[in-house]
Nucleic acid binder design. Structure first.
Lengths: 162, 162
DNA sequence: CGATTTATGTCAATATATTGCCTATATGGG
DNA sequence: CCCATATAGGCAATATATTGACATAAATCG
């Protein structure tokens, strides 16, 4: 209750200022992520791809994922629950963008890979993604970008431990 | 398709490096926001309050909102859809944390205010919120915090125009 | 080799989020 | 006064997200 007797606007203490800035950071994080999902999904509207599907397709298109990833692998990589990824994967599978293969080595696991259609979709949406990045980061210098990335990295590392 | 012929790791072009950093920024934004909702809701678990409910209660606890806000006001302030806010408000109303009053001036509008129980809840959760901020931003200097806030502000402003 | 633990995937319930569509109320010009 | 338009809120459909609970398969330990 540090702000109980704080006089805002006139003689704000350093501690109160820190709390105020922290509050704004998390509020902006909340708004920014929502805005990213909204505008990002809108940018890929003609392809019928949401930002989460974009993230999954992007993860599967990496060279390291060429021979497929399990639901658990995807969940760890994206830092979301297995149950969440399962839904996205099912919808992408229904669209024919990826295929689930039983892993012959591990009867529990199913390896998920991009289908040919999924690879075509990835090639198709990449220019739109590139354009979206350019517009969303317009006016950001190289240093501005690395500074923002570093801040988010540190924040994420802290929250991972909570 | 700037990265078609790019040689990663050896002779990366400036353009490819910018795209790579942009990709990481939005991926970290996605992960950070999810992690914030997960750890933030966990931090307030004993109060049964989610991060979105926290945002709504926080918005209504501001002095400017003393005589209530409409659903539309809340939606504009939090930058989410009215339909989304309506659900959060209904759940908070069911818990008795806030009250909806018909606006006598405008038959369409309903002014939403914190109830006494809502104000008690806000006072109860503020120490936990403060502690959460401290842990999530551990190691961030004053300058680190303002830099991150500035970056998020600029990014949000850009996305608002898309 | 059998029992416990661990990993994987799925089902269910709940809470956010979006867009699209609808009704009711207010406001403005003819 | 009346109709066109704009605004406020609500209903429905869909897609993310979480946690909890469960079944099954694999690994590990005694």
């Amino acid at each position: 209750m540090t702000q109980q007797k704080g006089e805002f606007g006139t003689e704000k203490t350093r501690e109160a200022a820190l709390a105020e800035i922290a509050n704004r950071i998390f509020f902006r994080l909340y708004q920014s992520a929502n805005m990213m999902h909204k505008t990002g999904t809108r940018a890929l509207d003609e392809f019928g791809v949401t930002t989460q599907q974009w993230a999954v397709i992007g993860a599967l298109s990496r060279p390291q994922a060429e021979d497929g990833l399990s639901v658990g692998d995807l969940a760890r990589f994206l830092m979301v629950s297995r149950q969440n990824i399962a839904g996205v994967v099912t919808r992408l599978e229904d669209q024919g963008c990826l295929e689930r293969l039983r892993d012959s080595n591990d009867g529990r696991s199913r390896r998920i890979r991009l289908s040919e259609r999924g690879r075509e979709l990835w090639r198709a949406i990449r220019p739109a993604i590139h354009e979206y990045y350019d517009e969303a980061l317009a006016g950001f210098s190289f240093e501005d970008r690395t500074a923002l990335l570093t801040g988010l990295n540190r924040l994420l590392d802290n929250m991972k431990r909570l």
